[in-house]
Nucleic acid binder design. Structure first.
Length: 366
DNA sequence: TACTCGTGGGA
DNA sequence: TTCCCAAGAGT
């Protein structure tokens, strides 16, 4: 076993007897009094529920909130979103991260628009749509269509792993399914959406990853981990991958007041977004490439991705308008030359937009 | 299955 | 500083 964090070899707890009615009553009663007031809970339509669920994937509510409001203002109905361009959707998503979510969001909007704006009213149907996995299908189906089906996210894994004191591992698909199975007889047929959201609220406000507030938990009397004082053992976690260190030299070419960018490939990091040119650290030093008189130091910046860490040095390269002395971009293309206004309108990830902001502050492009 | 894919906040 | 992790999905 290479993963010692999963290995801890205390006794395996037997699966405790489940008290479905006790869990339902305590949880829903608590939810009715102490559930969070969130904007998508004031709506019934599948579009708003779906939009919120996609944005909230691996994203904290406070971060997603302004994006959610902006999308509904720009595109009040799913048919409006379907009519937007992918670039417009990515621009509205700019800064929220995991950009494949935005592209799948747009694809699904077009599919649903082709169904007269009607989402499939079941988890099985929703699951077929781009960007909708097991959790999101269960969430939308239970909240918008009242299907009695679990929606097991990270919160629910934590709550149920503690409640049953089972060595379930966060992020392991087989264990997520075990929790779905465990929950199936517990989901109340009359309020499945409220029940699922109550579990998530409980995980987010009481059954916290560290220092859980068990004294304020409505399920404490039913919780095996709480009775043992072993809350902090559950759920188990995978050993994290090590973060790769990468050094980049970002080159922002400026000619006749225009700036060169490139659109990233369809797959991989930051796909579909625009970026400035960059070189890997193994490339020659900047002094051997560009004379000092033709460049402006844009400073250093460290950007942290999920498991990459970019140490970037930015340079503004001032090209003579009469000369065609600009090298080919990484993709072997000439690139796209944009004015400042156009540069503001294209979607660009935070990692690179840091230098866009510094560029604007210098007032070199028009 | 394990890895990839962003960004920000909190302990 | 460093680590964890947040309404996960796609491959």
């Amino acid at each position: 076993m290479k993963d010692k964090r999963i290995e801890h070899d205390d006794q395996i707890n037997p699966m405790p007897a489940v008290d479905p009615q006790g869990i339902r009553e305590r949880l829903l009663n608590w939810y009715d009094h102490s559930g969070r007031d969130l904007p998508w809970r004031q709506r019934q339509d599948a579009y708003a529920i779906w939009l919120s669920e996609i944005m909230l994937q691996q994203t904290q509510i406070q971060t997603a909130l302004p994006f959610y409001q902006r999308f509904l203002t720009l595109w009040p109905q799913v048919t409006d979103l379907a009519l937007a361009t992918e670039e417009q959707v990515l621009k509205a998503w700019e800064g929220l991260g995991y950009y494949s979510r935005a592209r799948n969001l747009h694809r699904t909007a077009k599919i649903v628009a082709g169904r007269e704006g009607q989402f499939p009213p079941s988890a099985a149907g929703l699951r077929q749509l781009p960007g909708i996995g097991a959790y999101t299908a269960g969430a939308i189906a239970s909240i918008a269509f009242h299907e009695a089906i679990p929606a097991v996210d990270g919160n629910v894994v934590r709550v149920i792993a503690r409640l049953a004191a089972q060595p379930w591992v966060r992020g392991r698909e087989a264990d997520r399914k075990s929790i779905e199975h465990w929950l199936e007889p517990v989901i109340p047929p009359d309020r499945p959406g409220d029940f699922n959201q109550a579990l998530m609220d409980l995980g987010a406000t009481r059954c916290l990853p560290s220092n859980p507030r068990c004294a304020d938990c409505p399920l404490r009397s039913l919780c095996v981990a709480a009775s043992e004082g072993t809350q902090d053992r559950y759920p188990l976690r995978r050993a994290p991958n090590k973060q790769a260190e990468e050094k980049k030299v970002v080159l922002i070419f400026c000619r006749d007041g225009r700036i060169r960018v490139n659109r990233q490939d369809e797959e991989g990091l930051l796909s579909g977004l625009y970026a400035f040119d960059w070189l890997d650290s193994t490339d020659p030093d900047i002094d051997t490439i560009w004379p000092e008189a033709e460049r402006v130091n844009l400073g250093h910046h460290v950007h942290i991705f999920s498991h990459r860490r970019w140490q970037m040095q930015g340079w503004l390269i001032l090209l003579d308008s009469s000369e065609n002395n600009c090298p080919e971009s990484q993709s072997g293309e000439e690139g796209i030359w944009l004015t400042r206004r156009q540069l503001d309108e294209i979607p660009m990830a935070r990692a690179l937009s840091v230098f866009r902001d510094r560029l604007f502050a210098l007032d070199y492009c028009r």
